[in-house]
Design a protein around this nucleic acid. Structure first.
Lengths: 245, 245
DNA sequence: GGGGAGAGATGCCGC
DNA sequence: GCGGCATTTCTCCCC
C-alpha cells in the first residue's frame, strides 16, 4: 500500500473512531515514563477507537510499544518514508514512528458495549473464607470483609474463641514475601487502632514460598492453605482434540 | 467473509507462523487462572506467530481476553456459527470463542528480530545514584549495586562516614507503602546477616505518598528526593502541531 | 484525582 | 523451573 494512502486511511479511521490494523515496517522511538528505541522491523500496528495505539512484534503477548487512550496522531511526509508522531498530553509522552512500508491496512467501526463477567478473583476468595471460616481455624469467626484502613484494606477481619482479633490476608496464587509484608503492615495498624498488644495474622493462599513461610513464622503469623474457588472447571486432561492443527 | 474461508485462512496462517488479524463478532468464555464470560460483540481478533491470541474490544489499551504463546487452535463448524477453541497445555487454560461473523481477516509473515533499547528504568536510577552518592547524603559512600539476598536484591548498598551500613531502595515513580515494606525487609535482613544493630535505610524516589512518608519516618528511615535519569527529553509544552487531526 | 492493591498481570534476571 | 521484583505495568475501587 502507498504511504500516501495509508496516511489518508488512518486520518479517516481516526475521524470515524474506527479500529485500524496494519502490517508496517518501521522503527520506533518512545519518550515518556521511560525512553526507548526499536530498530527497523515488521510489526502489527493498531489504532483503537479511543485513540489508544498498540504496536506488536510478531511474537509475545504484550505490545512492544503503546500509547494510552486519548492520544493524537500527526504525519510528516519525508522523502523516502512517512513520519508518524503520536502524542498524549495527559501523560506527556510521545511515540515517533518512521514508517517505510505498509501492508494490509484495514479499519472498521466496531460495535461492542459488553463488559466481561469474571469469577475466581481474590474477592471471591475472601467471600468464600467468610462463608467457610473453619478454613482459617477451627475457632475463627469472621467479622468484616475488605475493611478499609489508611494503610490498605484488610481482606477478612475476625476473632477467635478467646476474643483475639484475627487479620486474614488472601492470595489467590502462591504467597510470597510481599504478602507477608502486607499482612504485617495490617496487623501493626490494627494493633494501633484497637490499642491491643496481641493480634493474630493469617496468610490464606493455595501455597507459600519457603522464604515467605520462614518470614511469616518469624513474625508469629500462620499459613492457612486455601484454594481459590472456581465456579467452573473446564480443563480436562484427556479431552478430545477436534481438528487441531 | 465466509466463516469457512476464515477457518481456512486461520489454519494456513498458523501453519506458516504468520500474524493474523480479523474483525469478528463473537462471544467469549475463558477458563484458566480465573473464569470469564463476555457476551456477543464486535472485536479485533489477533493470532501471533508464536501462538499467542489476543482479543481487543474497540476501546482500552489492554486485551479483554488473551492466550499465551504456545496455544493451539481448533474449530468446530456449528449450524449458524463457528466455534473456536484455543487451548494452552502449559497453563491448562482454554478460550472458547463463538464466532458469528468475520470482516477483514488478513495475515502476513512478519520479519522482526529486533530488541528494544530502553533507558530510564530503575536500574539506570541505581546506576546514577552510585555515580552521584551525594544525592543520598553528603557522606554516603556506595559499595555495591543490586546486591542479592534471600529476601530480594538491594538496589544500592553503602555506608556513611561513621561506617554505618546504608541500604538504599530506589523507586522511579512516587514511592508508596510497599516500597517502605521492601526497605524495611532489606534493612532487617542486613542487620541479621551483618550482625549489627544499626542499619540506615534510605528511600530514594522523585516523590513519596504521605502515608508512606509517615511509615518511613516511624521506622527511622529517611526519604531522598531523586529523579530518575532521562537521556532524552522530547516532550515540550509549546511544540508545533503538524497536520494533526 | 490520589492512594492502595489486585491482576487470568507480563517479562526479566538470578540461583 | 522457582523466586523475587520491576513494569512506559493496567485496572479497579474507595476515599
Amino acid at each position: 500500500m502507498e504511504l500516501q494512502t495509508f496516511e489518508e486511511t488512518v486520518a479517516r479511521a481516526v475521524g470515524l473512531r474506527e479500529v485500524l490494523t496494519a502490517f508496517v515496517e518501521c522503527d520506533i522511538t518512545y519518550s515518556g515514563r521511560a525512553e526507548a528505541f526499536l530498530d527497523r522491523g515488521e510489526r502489527l500496528f493498531i489504532i483503537k477507537a479511543d485513540g489508544a495505539v498498540l504496536i506488536h512484534q510478531p511474537e509475545g503477548s504484550s505490545p512492544i510499544n503503546y500509547m494510552r487512550p486519548g492520544s493524537t496522531l500527526s504525519f510528516v511526509r519525508e522523502t523516502s518514508h512517512l513520519f508518524l508522531k503520536v502524542e498524549n498530553s495527559a501523560d506527556k509522552s510521545t511515540l515517533e514512528v518512521n514508517i517505510y512500508a505498509v501492508n494490509e491496512c484495514h479499519s472498521r467501526k466496531l460495535e461492542d458495549g459488553r463488559k466481561q463477567d469474571l469469577a475466581g478473583n481474590e474477592r471471591d476468595m475472601s467471600d468464600w473464607i467468610r462463608d467457610h471460616p473453619e478454613s482459617i481455624a477451627k475457632d475463627f469467626q469472621p467479622i468484616s470483609r475488605e475493611e478499609q484502613t489508611d494503610v490498605g484494606f484488610i481482606d477478612v477481619l475476625g476473632h477467635d474463641k478467646k476474643g483475639s482479633i484475627v487479620v486474614v490476608e488472601c492470595k489467590r496464587i502462591t504467597a510470597s514475601l510481599t504478602a507477608v509484608d502486607q499482612l504485617r503492615r495490617y496487623v501493626e495498624r490494627v494493633k494501633e487502632i484497637k490499642g491491643v498488644k496481641k493480634v493474630k495474622g493469617v496468610l490464606a493462599a493455595p501455597a507459600i514460598t519457603p522464604n515467605a513461610l520462614e518470614m511469616l513464622t518469624s513474625w508469629g503469623f500462620v499459613f492457612a492453605k486455601v484454594d481459590p474457588p472456581k465456579r467452573l472447571e473446564r480443563w480436562q486432561k484427556n479431552q478430545k482434540r477436534l481438528g487441531e492443527f
